[in-house]
Design a protein around this nucleic acid. Structure first.
Lengths: 248, 248
DNA sequence: ATCTCTAGGTAACAAGTTGTAACGGAAGCC
DNA sequence: GGCTTCCGTTACAACTTGTTACCTAGAGAT
């Protein structure tokens, strides 16, 4: 894949340029668009790998646009919204969005999501599915998103806590990519930190602890981890391949 | 191979001539170009071994040009950009380009990259691959970039620290080429030193230490190194052949 | 061949980072 | 309330990695 090409759809000029710039700074190609027509223009004009679609587009509802786009083409879509109630979230999934991010969002979280969706998209060419329910296989292990259940290579079921399985999901979505602690933190606690460069989170070493505990459960030799490798000075990486199946 | 012929594509006159001069001083043949049309002219007119392509070409996106060129021919391309704050990250991505360098770049780093890409190009005619994830074999040893794991000729697994495996990767990418300490340093810490002739890094002998430690791990007789030879007055060379396989 | 000078090998140390055991608070359950 | 489980914090040990200092080996001059 070449550099991913993103399309940021938002009717607020400021948000749009802020977003496109931020994404460009992080190695993506990002363009802006305001209307459904513009989206279609862009997609006509060239490849678009992912659309970041605001839910509140003045007159139009982003959700409806999403539904329409999805019916016709298979471009991955992340819905962006200030309304982060759960039922609305579900509505987004029903419509076929690949993910859903609340605004104001933590930039690290957004990055992680974008990468995750692109990853998935590049692997399983075309497949509208619901994020949570996939079945992952990695290094002999498997994780069933539907049951939130982990099976060891020997078939033993291993109980993970909420947070641990959350952590696992974050890594499964970003294999081979070193994740910084802040990114992990952000992806885990969907709490919206301040929008921009928010680097609060000076708490402590919770992530290290979490990783340690997860290792003790899914690494055959936790002292010498084969899957959850540490990237010194950076964070942690999942160093095995991940395959993802749509749920049965 | 004869002297490699490089093409520097940038719309800024100053950058372009600075770059071409620098490359010429380092033994390459370098020309400049500003537009895609000019690139094609040059390629028509004569062999071009490597293109250094700026990402921000005024109106056009270098990335798109890269994609187009790649679709038609197999010329190696290094993308140059000011956009890559989080550069390490890009490495994880599969880009159509052969490599990606941040601007302002450390000249030593650039040299190392150029050599590495030329090396690869001459070896494995055409191959879009994932930089990090290749599998290398050298002098009986192997290095698995995917697992970041080194196997001795006897099949024993040797644990390298982060920095040590980074060093190894630098050498694997540039076999038989004497690398100066500054180049190595630059390639290791992708940190952008000051743009031009920036020779800061007057720190100390960290590289010597690193090489020493790596030798102690992968040389059968560290006192008389067979692979990691020292090039007196210059730096170090990897003195064995390297084969590189794309990951399974 | 010997001398001298300098580059490089290496041990010892120091600073920074990570792994992990122990502790304690909070939430859920009986 | 008392228990258990989850999870963040702290403290400390172990490991990484750069720096310094000292010594040996090579290269060139005599």
């Amino acid at each position: 894949m070449t550099i991913p090409r993103l399309l940021v759809v938002d009717d607020d000029e400021e948000t749009r340029s802020m977003l496109t710039q931020f994404l460009q700074q992080n190695g993506f190609i990002a363009h802006g668009a305001q209307t459904e027509a513009e989206i279609r223009d862009r997609m006509q004009a060239g490849r678009v790998d992912l659309i970041l679609l605001d839910v509140m587009l003045g007159s139009e509802s982003g959700v409806e646009i999403c539904a329409r786009l999805r019916r016709e083409q298979d471009v991955p879509i992340i819905l962006v919204s200030a309304l982060s109630q759960d039922h609305q979230r579900m509505a987004g999934y029903e419509v076929g969005a690949d993910d859903y991010v609340a605004k104001p969002f933590n930039p690290d979280l957004l990055l992680a999501r974008v990468r995750a969706v692109l990853q998935r998209a590049s692997r399983s060419a075309s497949l509208v599915y619901r994020r949570q329910l996939a079945l992952f296989r990695f290094g002999g292990w498997s994780y069933d998103g539907k049951r939130d259940e982990v099976l060891s290579p020997q078939g033993f079921q291993v109980a993970l806590s909420q947070r641990e399985s959350g952590l696992l999901k974050v890594f499964l979505a970003n294999p081979h990519i070193p994740l910084r602690r802040e990114e992990i933190q952000a992806a885990l606690s969907e709490r919206l930190a301040a929008a921009s460069g928010a680097e609060s989170e000076g708490t402590g070493r919770a992530i290290d602890m979490l990783v340690g505990r997860l290792r003790s459960k899914i690494e055959s030799d936790p002292k010498d981890p084969q899957m959850l490798r540490t990237a010194r000075g950076v964070g942690y990486v999942l160093a095995v391949d991940v395959t993802e199946e749509s749920p049965a």
